[in-house]
Simulated scan of single mutants.
Amino acid sequence: MNRAITPGVAPQQSPTPTSEFSMQFTSTPRGARLARRLVSHRLHEWGYPYDSAPNETLTLIAAELTANAVRHGHVPGRDFHLRLTATATALRIEVADTRTERCPTPGELTAPPIDSESGRGLYLVSQLAHRWGVAPRADAPGKHVWAELRLPPIP
């Protein structure tokens, strides 16, 4: 499912969103949990029921990206930012943190060893999303990790 992109280069912006949700969260496990729940709730409000494949998949992606922002992107006193958009053809999530350290890009990511106790989050995202990537933040120090889920055409 994953489509390779040039590492470090942000993809073309999606078409103008038909729906958008954006919020800042505390960089804590509680903040990550709230972000995940709000993603699922927002998708449900936008017409993707809780038990639908798009809602379940994007909620799982949100859980991984927000957990990574808290665990690996945390800077004391700084929050993480989540942006969720929907267009007629795709759902997109972006999670921004203030850590400037690099994280693997799609071209660098490999499957974790089978006996590893961690390191599966981005790999899982890469298998669930149609496209994903990492880009520096334009408005502040740090990076944002994004993932897109294509939607089936509306008949």
Rank of each mutant, 00 (worst) to 15 (best):
Q127G: 12
F80K: 01
L128D: 04
R42H: 13
T87I: 04
D115M: 10
W132G: 02
R37H: 13
Q127R: 15
S52N: 11
R120M: 10
F80D: 01
L38C: 08
P112C: 11
P11I: 07
F80Y: 00
S22E: 13
N55L: 06
R99G: 06
A32R: 00
A138T: 11
R120H: 13
T110D: 12
P7R: 08
A35Q: 01
C103D: 07
T16Q: 15
A111F: 06
V39T: 03
S27W: 00
L91I: 01
L60R: 08
Q24C: 12
G121V: 02
S118W: 11
V9H: 10
I154L: 12
C103M: 13
L34W: 02
H130F: 10
W146Q: 00
G8A: 08
P113W: 06
L122E: 01
L149I: 03
D139I: 10
D97M: 05
A63F: 04
R3S: 14
T87M: 03
R137G: 02
A35N: 01
W46E: 03
G121D: 01
D79Q: 05
V39M: 06
R120S: 09
H41M: 12
C103W: 03
E56T: 09
A63C: 08
P29Y: 06
A53F: 12
P136L: 13
Y123S: 07
P136Y: 09
R30D: 10
G119E: 07
P141F: 05
A90G: 09
P136A: 13
T18A: 03
L58H: 01
F80H: 02
R92N: 05
K143S: 09
E64C: 07
N55R: 07
S27C: 14
A135E: 05
L58M: 15
D139W: 11
R120E: 11
E20K: 10
A111R: 11
S116W: 13
H74L: 12
M1S: 15
P155G: 11
T16P: 05
Q13S: 14
L149V: 02
D79H: 04
A62D: 05
R102K: 15
V75S: 05
A90H: 05
R92D: 09
H144R: 07
I114N: 12
S126F: 02
A53I: 13
E45A: 15
E45K: 12
A32M: 04
I61G: 02
R120Q: 14
E20G: 04
S14C: 08
V134T: 03
A111Y: 09
F80I: 00
H74K: 13
A63E: 05
A129M: 03
T18C: 03
A111Q: 13
T66W: 00
A86Y: 01
D115P: 06
H41K: 13
G121R: 04
F80Q: 02
G107S: 14
L128P: 00
G31Q: 02
A35L: 01
R137V: 03
L34N: 03
G133E: 06
A129L: 06
A88G: 10
P11Y: 08
R42S: 07
P104S: 12
N55V: 06
